[in-house]
Write a protein that binds this DNA or RNA. Sequence first.
DNA 1: CAGTGGTCTAGACCACGAA
DNA 2: TCGTGGTCTAGACCACTGT
Lengths: 242, 242
Amino acid sequence: MISSVASRRHVIADDLRNLISTGRLKARERLPSEAELAVRYQVSTPTLRNALALLQAEGLIEKIHGKGNFVRRPLPRVTYVGGGLVPAQPVLPVSVHVKKLRARGDVAALLRVAAGSPVTELRFLSHDGQTPHSLAHVYVPRDLAPTDVPADPHWPQEVASLLSGSLPLLTEVQEKVLVRLPTPPEAAALRISSTLAILAVTRVATDTTGRVIEVALLVLPGDRTDAVFTTRHTTGERSAEG
Amino acid sequence: MISSVASRRHVIADDLRNLISTGRLKARERLPSEAELAVRYQVSTPTLRNALALLQAEGLIEKIHGKGNFVRRPLPRVTYVGGGLVPAQPVLPVSVHVKKLRARGDVAALLRVAAGSPVTELRFLSHDGQTPHSLAHVYVPRDLAPTDVPADPHWPQEVASLLSGSLPLLTEVQEKVLVRLPTPPEAAALRISSTLAILAVTRVATDTTGRVIEVALLVLPGDRTDAVFTTRHTTGERSAEG
DNA sequence: CAGTGGTCTAGACCACGAA
DNA sequence: TCGTGGTCTAGACCACTGT
């Protein structure tokens, strides 16, 4: 963690980082204004802002326009467990929005249905305290989804049980994980900086007949998400790595 | 992809991004100097550099001090397939360095051996053409590793077969995936900007006796890596999601 | 050496939030 | 309104790369 050729902004960032990690700047606390910090560190405001940008990229501070810079709560990391379906027992409180629509290009392709096929969209937004944590769009072919989906089910348990109740047996879940920057709406929904990389998971669940029963597009903030995948082998199979 | 309240640097970044994606700026090509671009776009150099920083964060351009800004080769994405061991049939050419050492804190804990236990370290660096792609540190308990590891095996095939040959049956591979910024040595080894997020995979392979036979720490560049994990279910088990 | 990017300055003006 | 962060300017000087 020691920068060899420390530029000023790195020195400042290191100093502030120490203040935060040692607790002298506490969570949710407001930092002195940028003008004041610039005076304190004897640098110009752009340089000081550059230092803050480093901390922001690390997810240590949050900038709020017109209010100030705030120390972010020491990130409680949340573990995403791969291989599942719609959260049966969500770890965090979740709000759900249900929409009936017709499959567009990407979703249709993943669901392996014709474009325009009726699907049910479930939009999950999980919260950790007051701050949003993760965003999920789940798509289920309409004929698999229960006919009467409650307009705004407060308990995703309902949704989950609806899904898990009368479905054919799940045989395979394939998850594609990639890193990217959030789109503006994603950054807004998760209240993260658009410079903070996210973990994007595309999950496709298949039943015993080979039919795709669920497609989920998950957006997990990169600074506080661990994703865990477990593969069990019965024989001595091996896969490759690039 | 349309920025509503486009600041100048976003306008410039959008323009250059288009020039790149439409091929009017070709791969490996040098961009005009920052001074020249600043004149062309009628902005100051910091603003222009700010625009380039956006493209750099997206992995579209590469800055080389003293030489210029270069369009990066259209990123051939490489898929990491989860659930495997040391690459049996690596997709990309790999250079390997073997070292015998004693387990330190983290590695010892993951291997579930006492600190100071002898382990063999395999350092893999895969290349895609001339540019490095991924970095892997694989740790195997010494008594599981073959006694005579060649000093510098050019063919990882050798290493892989050594590993896959006389090992107990693999039963479970657990992979923990997270996003973070690269450490300076990682950024140097992969020749990526230290602002480009990477996918860090911690892979723990267990054999039939419950013993950990391999721990791998993988670093995969976020701008050109897909990681795919497949979970097969025999019963209708379900997992949770945060 | 000349040309390039890397860093920094000392301001200016705009946009947002709270009173 | 005032204080905050967001953006931008028009330079300056340093560090690296090639000739």
